[in-house]
């Protein structure tokens, strides 16, 4: 009977699954002890993974310095969701979704004012201003772009196409007749206030016809 009991016990102990379980328990116990602090406050084992997420220190170059005279009267902050996909023969399709952010600034480029655009007569001043326009063709802050979803590999050309698409959408949404009128109304209000500060009682402001030109980015103002 005793021999039978011993052989049953050995069979139980030598069962491969039980060996794994016992080994797991031993590992767990050791890990628990290791994780705990020693009496002097130091850890028996302390491991950390160091992963640098910061960019390197690199120089920068000021490529151009330009003195400008542009008066902004309306700013339009916009966000555009742009996505693209590519079909694959095998597996799921590739997708890239990015959210672009930018601010379009509408106002007057004073360098486009014609000679004699300011005339005075007594307490009256007349301003003949160029049309309201988009002040800069570069309005997307790509550093604020959000990489929303990405699967698959995408080339520089794909991202450039998405950037251009976002820029087109932003122009279309921002350069509306209402926004142009709002900017013009605000310009009139602000410049009238400014001229009155200089002592003029009557301020007459006119704008050159917007259909005369196309703005600096080649987008016709509606």
């Amino acid at each position: 009977m005793s021999s039978n009991n011993d052989s049953w016990l050995m069979r139980q102990l030598l069962n491969p699954l039980r060996i794994i379980i016992i080994a797991g328990l031993v590992v767990a116990a050791v890990a628990f002890v290791v994780h705990d602090r020693l009496g002097d406050g130091r850890k028996l084992l302390e491991i950390e993974v160091e992963h640098n997420t910061s960019i390197d220190l690199t120089p920068q170059q000021v490529r151009s310095i330009e003195r400008i005279g542009q008066w902004e009267f309306l700013s339009i902050a916009d966000e555009e969701l742009v996505d693209t996909s590519r079909q694959r023969l095998l597996g799921s399709d590739d997708h890239l979704v990015r959210i672009y952010r930018g601010t379009l600034r509408l106002g007057l480029d004073l360098s486009r004012c014609q000679q004699g655009w300011i005339t005075t007569s007594g307490d009256t001043v007349r301003l003949e201003l160029p049309p309201i326009q988009l002040l800069s063709p570069h309005f997307i802050d790509e550093a604020r772009t959000e990489a929303f979803y990405e699967s698959g590999t995408w080339t520089a050309r794909d991202k450039e196409a998405m950037y251009q698409k976002a820029a087109r959408q932003m122009r279309r949404r921002a350069l509306t007749r209402d926004n142009i009128r709002s900017a013009e109304a605000n310009a009139t209000e602000q410049l009238t206030s400014l001229m009155r500060s200089f002592g003029f009682q009557t301020v007459e402001i006119s704008y050159q016809s917007s259909h005369v030109g196309v703005n600096t980015v080649g987008t016709r103002i509606p």
Binding site: I68, Q70, W71, F73, L74, S75, L135, R173, N179, Q190
Partner: peptide
């Protein structure tokens, strides 16, 4: 879109 009336004279661009 967030539209805001402003009055800013931009004088330098880098």
């Amino acid at each position: 879109l967030r539209v805001r009336a402003t009055s800013r004279l931009y004088t330098a661009e880098y």
